[in-house]
């Protein structure tokens, strides 16, 4: 057992535990929207049921990304059983888990919000189901960008952890946990900081884009005639709301590529 091994296992647990949080909430919220829609329009049951399932399937993706990274971290932990006690390598594994785990929270909740609002809007005005369904799919796909950024940074960190490291003491010594000087300290900080920046950076934009998507679906159902104007406002507004997560991606890439 080494430090990197333990960090990879901890990272796998954090990735899946935090990653399932948002999707779990979102899928349940989509189901709640479907129930409300059914109570209003029982005759539209097949359409509502189908839309709910499609929305829930897309809401599932952040959890699946987290599952993939958790598996990769689990395999990485098996390969680092006898690795030296490298702090930088351990930080890379821990950062990868934190990045996708925290990054999946916003996208999971956000996708569920969009599906809920779309189902609600559809049941309010059944004649607008086609455009609302399209807006729902666009909105949910857009909400996923945050956790896709987090997945990219997680994979960079995993690659960095699998290649770097291998410097450090062979077995446990107390001072190996507090390296006072050297590039190892800097690389450790870079890995952790990259994971934190992209993980937390994905939350806000995903939630904001999700709110915009849900309101766009509701507005479309309320005023089907002005869908071109709503589309323009929605697309431009969501693109602007995306920019904070792009800033986070830039900072994370600077941090992880210089490690």
């Amino acid at each position: 057992m080494g430090l990197a091994n333990a960090a990879a296992l901890l990272g796998a647990g954090l990735a899946m535990g935090l990653g399932a949080l948002g999707s779990g909430f979102g899928i349940g919220y989509a189901a709640g929207g479907a129930l409300r829609a059914l109570a209003r329009q029982p005759i539209k049951q097949p359409l509502i049921f189908r839309t709910m399932l499609v929305g829930q399937a897309i809401t599932e993706t952040p959890a699946i990304f987290a599952l993939v990274v958790a598996f990769l971290l689990y395999f990485a932990s098996a390969e680092t059983l006898d690795a030296p006690w490298s702090l930088a390598q351990s930080a890379a594994f821990l950062g990868a888990g934190l990045c996708i785990g925290v990054g999946a929270i916003g996208s999971g909740i956000g996708s569920g919000l969009v599906a809920h609002d779309a189902l609600d809007a559809m049941s309010g005005n059944p004649s607008s189901q086609g455009p609302v369904l399209m807006f729902m799919l666009i909105g949910q796909a857009w909400v996923q960008t945050g956790c896709i950024f987090a997945l990219v940074i997680s994979l960079f960190l995993l690659a960095s952890g699998n290649s770097a490291g291998l410097s450090g003491p062979e077995d446990f010594r107390l001072w190996s946990l507090i390296p006072l000087a050297g590039p190892e300290t800097v690389a450790t900080a870079r890995h952790l900081a990259a994971g934190l920046a992209m993980g937390f950076g994905a939350i806000g934009s995903s939630l904001g884009i999700a709110y915009a998507g849900g309101m766009a679906c509701r507005s479309l159902a309320a005023m089907p005639g002005s869908d071109a104007r709503i589309k323009t406002v929605y697309f431009v507004g969501s693109a602007t709301a995306q920019s904070p997560s792009v800033f986070s991606l830039i900072i994370s890439l600077i941090l992880v590529l210089n490690a």
Binding site: L192, A193, A194, G195, L196, A197, M198, G199, F200, G201, I203, G204, S205, S206, L207, G208, I209, A210, Y211, A212, G213, G214, M215, A216, R218, S219, I230, V233, Y234, V236, G237, S238, T240, A241, S243, P244, S245, F247, S248, I251, S252, L255
Partner: peptide, 25 residues
């Protein structure tokens, strides 16, 4: 730097999305 950018982008992201949603409405 990492914590600054990570936490610093939560608020603007939610706020801009809220503005976009209300503009659609």
């Amino acid at each position: 730097a990492g914590i600054c950018m990570g936490l610093g982008s939560i608020g603007p992201g939610i706020g801009e999305g809220f503005a976009a949603g209300k503009a659609c409405e």
